[in-house]
């Protein structure tokens, strides 16, 4: 099953209490942050802490990422060494402006993989655009490396770069979100939306999640475990969608049994995008607990 990324829980990298508990919540992904949530004087402490935690804690059942510092400083390079060497996580870049940033990061990772005898290409990456330039370069960024698994948008810095402010309906994010999403689709990777900081505003949060789901995003950044359930609920497919998806999968099996090369459902031909979409619907349904795993495999 393809890795679901409906929820990406941010965990400050210098907080031992939060790091050790990050795995108990049912977020699809956990991201330890060495960048914005860590003060300048504690960057080394956070690096050691996340490195030791990754080497010791049980990380099964989720995808783990680490957001490193910008690579134009020795901080970022040291972060990469400490984290890539653990062989366990996806590297999330901070503010990505251009494809150059991706390539530079890739070069460093390649070097580290060689030095530490890690299977070349096994370390994946995730980009994040947080500026006008980044958004405009989204497609180049998203297609810059086969290591990329996704691209995210960071609203706070982006909106500041645009010289405006965040609003409830997010109209100022419309273009940025769409660009990131289109870039993700063109590159065949996931699109992850920005954080929603007002943890107590459940209604506002749900509205935003509905919006980005409708736009086509694969998931949302989460800053508090209390936000997880709402996202998973909203991303749960409807029964109608599930039935449709099962019908597609059934049609494929039927075609395979008959040895037919052409797959048809209700008189219409089914092509690859439809199949992939059906599979994703089923994956989401199983993850939400609405569909049992065996039914899906039968």
């Amino acid at each position: 099953m393809k890795q679901l990324r409906r929820t990406m829980l941010y965990v400050p990298g210098n907080n031992p209490g939060m790091i050790k508990d990050a795995g108990i919540y049912n977020a699809d992904c956990v991201m330890f942050d060495l960048e914005d949530s860590v003060s300048v004087v504690e960057k080394d402490a956070a690096r050691f802490l996340v490195n030791e935690a990754l080497r010791t804690l049980d990380l099964t059942g989720k995808e783990y990422l680490v957001r490193v510092n910008a690579l134009d400083s020795p901080l970022g390079i040291a972060d990469l060494e400490a984290i890539v060497s653990t062989r366990k996580v996806v590297i999330r870049l901070p503010k990505t402006e251009s494809a150059q940033d991706i390539l530079q990061c890739e070069r460093e990772i390649e070097r580290i993989e060689r030095e530490y005898n890690i299977e070349p290409g096994s370390t994946r990456m995730m980009a994040a655009v947080e500026s006008a330039a980044g958004v405009l370069n989204a497609k180049e960024i998203a297609t810059a490396s086969p290591r990329l698994i996704g691209i995210a948008i960071g609203a706070e810095d982006y909106v500041t770069d645009l010289k405006t402010t965040r609003s409830a309906n997010g109209v100022e994010l419309m273009f940025g979100r769409s660009m990131v999403l289109l870039a993700a689709r063109a590159a065949g990777i996931d699109a992850i939306d920005t954080v929603y900081s007002d943890v107590n505003n459940e209604e506002g949060f749900r509205e935003e999640v509905q919006l980005i789901k409708q736009l086509g995003f694969d998931g949302k950044s989460i800053i508090n475990p209390r936000q997880i359930n709402a996202v998973h609920e909203i991303f749960t497919p409807s029964l109608k969608e599930i039935d449709k998806a099962l019908a597609v999968i059934e049609a494929i099996k039927e075609a395979n049994r008959k040895g037919s090369g052409v797959i048809a459902l209700n008189g219409k031909m089914i092509d690859k995008p439809v199949v992939m979409r059906a599979q994703r619907t089923i994956d989401l349904a199983v993850a939400s607990g609405v569909l049992e795993k065996e039914r899906e495999n039968a």
């Binding site: 402490a45 050691f48 802490l49 935690a53 080497r55 020795p74 040291a78 653990t86 062989r87 530490y116």
Partner: peptide, 26 residues
Amino acid sequence: CVIRARVKTAAYRAAGEECCHWGGDT
């Protein structure tokens, strides 16, 4: 793992050095 991390951090700070080799699995 937290104790190890904090001890290493303090050690490198006290020695005025940067850590140069990162191990794999503990």
